[in-house]
Amino acid sequence: MSEKMAISFTVNGNRETREVEVGHTLLKFIRDELHLTGTKSGCEIGECGACTVMLDGKPVNSCLVLAVEIDGKELLTIEGLTENGELDRIQKAFIDHAAFQCGYCTPGMIMSARALLERTANPTDEDINQALSGNLCRCGAYQEIREAVKAASKK
């Protein structure tokens, strides 16, 4: 069975209408159909957070959302953070604090951080820890990430 459905949604500010396979996750759709490859796959069971994107303003694991579910919704991926080539404040802070190493978890980490700063303007270490605990970084940039998110919140 390979059922398709038409859906309309906004991705990084652009309206789109697409036919999607109902069997596909949002992660697969973002990467293979929208070709937004900044969103990464790391576990496909919602444990690593590499696929974190924002859906209607909230961070979600795109491996645990079906592509069809975004009908009528607003999707923001890492590619939507830069405007006219200008990095957002979190991206800049991640660079300043070297808050990444291999960079594979980074897009998901930044999306979770962005969602945090949208709901909590001045997060404490504990807020940051809670918000990012679903984003695994095996390189162990956690200390730098905490510093970067704090610094970004002050900008």
Binding site: T37, G38, L81
Partner: peptide, 16 residues
Amino acid sequence: RKDAIEKVTGSAQFIE
């Protein structure tokens, strides 16, 4: 880092 901008924007290309 030389790879900084690519990595924070998601434009760094990994194999997949």
